[in-house]
Each structure stands twice: as structure tokens, then as C-alpha cells.
């Protein structure tokens, strides 16, 4: 019966405990809607025909509803609507309240991929492995804009907000592979932000965890990530980091905020720096590039003029990559802070 209804309504297969609850209410609501609209529609069509106009200037009787009729008009929908609300809200509370023994998985959405990390465990990109018949709580966050984590077969959905965690949970009922979709518009490749949940049976799950711990499947999941989707500047920043390491920048410049021989890279971009001459200069792309090519031109107050020039050692794209890297090193300081997200510490377990 349920399968038939599912087919009529084009519902995807049900694979979580919440899906069963949602679908039951769905059938109830659709059923009542159909019966009620059929009743209203039939009555209307009957009236259209029965009371069709017989002569052009026909007059009609003055009919007004009695209090009883009006009461019926109000109470009938109200009773149904409140019943639906009661069932729906009970399920909604069920859905927003993860059980205490749930397994935690951290989910981070970013343009345009999903990253999953297990506490003390492996990471994954775009593929989430979970055991069947065990509640799994997802703590969702985002690195850039709002995303929304949606698994149609589980009937669950929750927005991932930048800079904070939302939670959702599910208990998958049968092993299999289920699609993850992003349902909050998040930019150019919104529709490519797909992933999948792999639900494993108990023993498969144990094996998978073991394999992950032993590192037998190195980067299996990372390989799935479509690098072409990573923003251009982010890829450049990664190149820049490698370059900076090769070129020995880190001998004099730290990235943790502590001044060394040279000023730290952390939070440098966009800051107003004071020069030895007392002049104040905004650190922008041009300033960083010039400091690499002609370090002696501007010396920051408090630092010696010891930096060699990189004129000729770095190509244009290379210096641009290093600039991108420095730009990516914003301090978590509230002044210039980039979104690094909160740190969530679970108390239980």
C-alpha cells in the first residue's frame, strides 16, 4: 500500500526512521486534501449546473449562512489543521532533538563541496559513510555562504550557516547509497554540489573504520573532490603556500601572529602599517608585491632592512600566488577576522 502511494506521489525510497514519520503524515494530509477538494469541487460543479441562469434579469433569494453554518466553516478546517500541526510538530521536535547516543559527524559545506569529519577519525569529501540502524548526528557549518544539506531518501534537510553550527540527525534503516543535494542557492555551481551518503551494515562499518585507521585507502575520498570547483583564489593560495615554503619565506616570517625577523604574515593583508619614516601604508596586493621585489623601498617600523630581493627569482604568477596566500592568512581577530568558525566541544562520550 505504502509502496503504491509512494509511486503515485513520486516519493523517493524511504531509508530513515524520520522518513517513515514524514510519509505517514504526508499520506494523511494528501488524503484529506483530496477528499476535501473533491467535496468542494463537486459541490461547486453541482451548483454551477443546478443553479445556472434561466433568464437574463433573474433575481435570487437572499441567502445568508446561519451561525451554525459559519461555525462549521471555521471549526472543520481548524480541527484538521490543528491535528496536522500537532502530528507535524511532534515529528519536528523528534527531528530537531538528536538522541543522546548518536554518533557525531562534523559537516562543512563550502563552495561547492561537502566535507565530513569524524571526531578522532578519518575525513571525507562529498562521501559520508555511516552505519545503518545507528543514530547519527550531523553538526553542520559552512565556510562561505549558506548551504543546505538534503538527503531526499532520509527526508532530512538542514541549513549549514557560516560561523556557527546547526544540527540534524538521522537513523538510516537500510544499507545503500543515497544522494546528498544542496538546497540553498550558493552560487555558480550550486547544482553541482552533490554528494552521497553510504550507509554500511554493522560489519561493513567496522571494516571501513579499520581500513581508514590503517590508512589503506589513502585519499580515496579526496580523489572524488572535483578540484575544478575549488575557487581559483583558493587554489592559488595553496600554490603560494608551497612556494613560500620553497623560497624560505618562513625563515623570517611566521604565520602564527608572532613577529620574527620580519613581520608575521598573519593578518598582514589589509592592515595599516607604520613605516620607519612614520608614513602609514595600507598593505594591499601592490605593497606586498613591491616588498618582494624591492624590499628596501619601505621598511616597517621595528624591523631591520635585511630582506633579499626576489626580483627575477619569482615569476609574475608565482608572486601573485604568494600574495593570494598572504591574503588568505587573515587573523581570527575580530577586527579583520575571516570566518574561521567556532570550535565545538561535545561534553558527552
Amino acid at each position: 500500500m505504502n509502496e503504491l502511494l509512494n509511486d503515485i506521489l513520486f516519493l523517493p525510497e524511504r531509508a530513515s526512521t524520520f522518513a517513515d514519520r514524514v510519509d505517514t503524515l504526508h499520506y494523511f494530509v494528501v488524503g484529506v486534501t483530496m477528499v476535501a477538494s473533491l467535496a468542494v469541487g463537486t459541490a461547486a460543479l453541482f451548483f454551477f449546473f443546478r443553479y445556472r441562469r434561466r433568464k437574463p434579469a433573474q433575481t435570487t433569494e437572499y441567502v445568508v449562512p446561519s451561525v451554525k453554518t459559519e461555525f462549521l466553516f471555521v471549526s472543520l478546517p481548524l480541527i484538521f489543521f490543528l491535528t496536522w500541526f500537532a502530528i507535524g510538530y511532534r515529528d519536528f521536535v523528534f527531528y530537531t532533538t538528536p538522541p543522546k547516543d548518536a554518533m557525531d559527524v562534523y559537516v562543512m559545506g563550502k563552495q561547492w563541496m561537502w566535507k565530513f569529519s569524524y571526531p578522532e577519525g578519518p575525513n571525507g569529501v562529498n562521501v559520508l559513510h555511516v552505519p545503518a540502524n545507528r543514530p547519527v548526528r550531523l553538526l553542520l557549518t559552512s565556510r562561505d555562504v549558506i548551504h543546505s544539506f538534503f538527503v531526499p531518501s532520509f527526508r532530512i534537510k538542514m541549513d549549514a550557516l557560516p560561523g556557527r553550527y546547526t544540527q540534524t540527525w538521522f537513523e538510516a534503516t537500510k544499507p545503500g547509497t543515497y544522494q546528498i543535494l544542496c538546497t540553498e542557492y550558493c552560487g555558480l555551481s550550486h547544482s553541482k554540489m552533490l554528494g552521497e551518503v553510504v550507509v554500511l551494515s554493522a560489519e561493513d562499518w567496522d571494516n571501513w573504520v579499520k581500513e581508514q585507521r590503517q590508512g589503506k585507502l589513502p585519499n580515496r575520498q579526496d580523489a572524488l573532490a572535483d578540484l575544478s570547483l575549488v575557487p581559483h583564489s583558493a587554489r592559488m593560495a595553496e600554490q603560494g603556500q608551497a612556494l613560500a615554503a620553497n623560497q624560505g619565506c618562513f625563515k623570517c616570517h611566521t604565520v602564527n601572529g608572532e613577529p620574527h625577523i620580519g613581520p608575521t604574515f598573519l593578518g598582514m593583508y589589509g592592515r595599516l602599517e607604520t613605516m620607519q619614516t612614520g608614513q602609514k601604508i595600507l598593505v594591499d596586493e601592490a605593497f606586498i608585491t613591491q616588498s618582494m621585489m624591492d624590499p628596501g623601498a619601505y621598511i616597517l617600523a621595528g624591523f631591520p632592512n635585511v630582506m633579499p630581493t626576489y626580483q627575477g627569482k619569482l615569476t609574475g604568477p608565482q608572486s601573485a600566488a604568494i600574495v593570494e596566500y598572504i591574503k588568505s592568512l587573515r587573523t581570527p581577530d575580530i577586527r579583520t577576522g575571516a570566518s574561521r568558525g567556532p570550535v565545538y566541544e561535545p561534553l558527552s562520550q
Binding site: 524520520f18 514519520r21 514524514v22 503524515l25 504526508h26 494530509v29 489543521f81 496536522w84 500541526f85 502530528i87 507535524g88 510538530y89 511532534r90 515529528d91 519536528f92 523528534f94 527531528y95 538534503f150 531526499p152 527526508r155 532530512i156 534537510k157
Partner: peptide, 8 residues
């Protein structure tokens, strides 16, 4: 408006 149906 029933909240739980809105989720999917």
C-alpha cells in the same frame, strides 16, 4: 505549515 512535512 505542519513543520515536519516542510523539512523534505
Amino acid at each position: 505549515g505542519t513543520a515536519s512535512l516542510d523539512v523534505p
